[in-house]
Design a protein around this nucleic acid. Structure first.
Lengths: 151, 151
DNA sequence: GTTGAAAATATACAGAC
DNA sequence: GTCTGTATATTTTCAAC
């Protein structure tokens, strides 16, 4: 699928996304233009989805992570509920979970007070939502979107 | 804390992290050198944690997300368990959850077969782990590390 | 894939506010 | 301390091979 050079390029970019293209080229010992072409191709082919700046949540007054299990009265996965949950700005993740007729929602807030407000005003108001169960995070040991590149 | 210009710069970078500095400068109508200085300062002050490339998990044969509740026999949060869970390559998140004497682990795997292997060979083998409860994801509606910038 | 030159961008610095 | 403007260095782009 991907050859060793492309895999190496991706590993380098996963270490440090803002590294200049010429530096990547040095590390894989190829001409910068060839490396650039490979990266563009990886973007076109959908191996690379994009580039993100990672802000420090605590600096922006998001000190609390919470996971909320959202139960619905309807059986199965009705797209509307997932989408409505996804629209909430503070929500970072929405997953529909097997065997529980419900969604798992991850969100960030300043504190439990703001958490309560969001549950009350943005989640509980969704028609199909029948119950929520909130777990607050006391400590985070790892939080990354990185995946191990096979090969 | 941060003035409107820095907030605007951060919003621009959150939209598109790989945008050239001169383009950011155009959008905020300032000299590139001033914008660069602000970004460097935001990095130094820890508002910006770093830059990441976002790979498409499915393209790398990670088609299954799972959340695993990991219960421990010891009461409270013993740093060793959290760290050992964090060391597992496929694990993207490890949180210690209030009121459950356990961790919530998010990971990505190819399929349920690989999931079973990791639980058996990498999670269950940790001494303090007394039980695990796995939820598999059927559909994901949102998955981002973005935070709403206040102000 | 490479090279090489032109264009664009990033960086460093001086001076104004 | 932060901005602008300029110079200098580096990188990106692109044509030719």
């Amino acid at each position: 699928m991907l050859d060793d050079i492309s895999l190496k390029i991706l590993k380098i970019l996963q270490e440090k996304a803002r590294i200049p293209n010429v530096e990547v080229a040095r590390q894989v010992e190829m001409a910068p233009s060839a490396v650039l072409e490979r990266i563009r191709k990886l973007e076109r082919q959908g191996f690379i989805d994009g580039y993100e700046v990672r802000l420090n949540p605590e600096q922006f007054d998001y000190r609390q992570i919470a996971f909320i299990k959202v139960q619905t009265s309807t059986v199965g996965d009705s797209p509307e509920v997932g989408q409505r949950l996804a629209e909430i700005a503070e929500v970072q993740e929405v997953h529909y979970i097997a065997g529980e007729d419900g969604y798992l929602v991850k969100l960030r807030v300043a504190d439990t007070r703001e958490l309560a407000t969001i549950i009350r005003e943005k989640i509980a108001v969704i028609q199909e939502v029948s119950a929520t169960q909130t777990s607050t995070v006391l400590q985070t040991y790892k939080e990354t979107a990185r995946i191990p590149i096979r090969g």
